[in-house]
Design a protein around this nucleic acid. Structure first.
Length: 359
DNA sequence: TCTGGGGTCCTAGGACCC
DNA sequence: TCTGGGGTCCTAGGACCC
């Protein structure tokens, strides 16, 4: 389907975690609220997951070390991440959104893309639809969101970020290039810190700079990604709105309160994480072949070590034994460990499992 | 700035097979 | 002793997303 014909919405819930906490605790209204790691009087490890707009006035941002947030705003209400609650609210919000879309794609816990092409006849109607969506979410869940409307996912996503919170931004097909031109490249999907730095070194700061750059050089420098960058800079994105298929991996990891070379503690923690992964494996009726152990040392150097079994399994014993085996390679009495993690992947569907058993 | 936790996708080299 | 081409799987690392 060509870009001209589609109408895509991107819905982004406003400071989702803290908005839910404020809803559950009216006494927080008007106060800075920060959801994330335990600040421990400024000594805590970990980061800010979400903060409300009152906290942002103090310079607090999501992803920031919690110790820094504490320095900027010690008087804030600090809360742990209550995933169970947020997931429940998310499911209800997604259910509301899904009704409005012909094609639907959730994007993390608090965002979604909706293809509404055959539900509306033009952008005016799309805007009306977006307002209805905002009303329904506010009425049913007491939460606000920001919506972007555009001819593709890229334009819609960037548009939803333009006016926050509680915003609505429409970018029509003929306006896309002009809309993107002055924005920093970092706004593009898949342009993170590293790519931004590389582009900066090439003299590319804005999406407009990128659009004017030689596509051949971009392809040489960034491979497949380079071609994608050039197209995105021109507002072209043909990717479909589609529901994510099955899950590809399940993992758990834990950063220790203090870096440690107590190998008993490390092994015990790994066992605990394996048990949590195992619970998920059972719940989802999954068979895995590959086990990966992740270690982060005190200097933040991070390694993964994996093993693919010659058989597929869903047994805790296989998981624990393989993980323990993989861990051995990392135990060095001279270097403390900051984080330990375990992951299973390379899943076989139940059908595949049956076939193999029959053979 | 002293950097969580749960994911996805890409790349590149090497093993192995036909 | 030298040696093609294609395909798939495995492993490790890295960038990115929320």
């Amino acid at each position: 389907m060509s870009d001209k014909k589609r109408i895509i919405l991107h819905v982004d819930m406003d400071h989702f975690f803290t908005a839910i906490e404020e809803r559950e605790h009216p006494e927080f209204k008007g106060k800075p609220v920060i959801v994330g790691a335990d600040p421990k009087e400024g000594k805590g490890r970990g980061v800010v997951s979400t903060c409300n707009y009152e906290a942002r006035k103090f310079g607090v941002r999501s992803g920031m070390p919690i110790s820094k947030a504490w320095k900027l705003c010690p008087q804030a209400v600090y809360l742990p991440v209550n995933y169970e609650l947020y997931t429940k609210v998310s499911e209800r919000v997604m259910e509301i959104l899904r009704k409005y879309a012909v094609k639907f794609e959730s994007w993390g816990i608090d965002e979604a893309f909706l293809d509404v092409t055959s539900k509306v006849k033009d952008y005016t109607e799309a805007e009306t639809l977006a307002r209805r969506i905002k009303e329904e979410i506010l009425e049913k869940e007491g939460l606000t969101c920001s919506i972007g409307i555009g001819p593709n996912k890229l334009a819609a996503k960037i548009a939803s970020d333009q006016q926050k919170p509680n915003g609505l931004t429409v970018v029509k097909p003929e306006e896309v290039e002009k809309f993107l031109e002055p924005l920093p490249v970092r706004k593009l999907l898949w342009v993170g810190r590293k790519t931004e730095q590389k582009l900066q070194a090439m003299g590319i700061k804005t999406i407009g700079d990128l659009a004017r750059y030689d596509p051949t050089v971009l392809a040489e420098t960034f491979g497949l990604m380079g071609k994608q960058l050039y197209l995105m800079a021109h507002g072209i994105d043909r990717s479909e709105v589609e529901e994510r298929s099955e899950i590809k991996s399940i993992s758990r990891e834990k950063t220790f309160d203090e870096d440690t070379n107590d190998f008993n503690l490390v092994a015990k923690t790994l066992d605990g994480l394996a048990e949590e992964v195992y619970r998920d494996v059972l719940r989802q009726n999954i068979y895995f072949k590959t086990v990966t152990v992740k270690v982060r040392y005190e200097n933040f150097e991070t390694h993964t070590h994996s093993k693919t079994l010659s058989f597929i399994t869903n047994r805790l014993d296989d998981l624990k034994k393989t993980a323990k085996e993989l861990l051995q390679a990392y135990l060095n009495p001279n270097v403390k460990i900051r984080l330990i993690g375990v992951r299973v992947s390379n899943f076989a569907s139940f059908e595949k499992q049956k076939t193999l058993v029959e053979i």
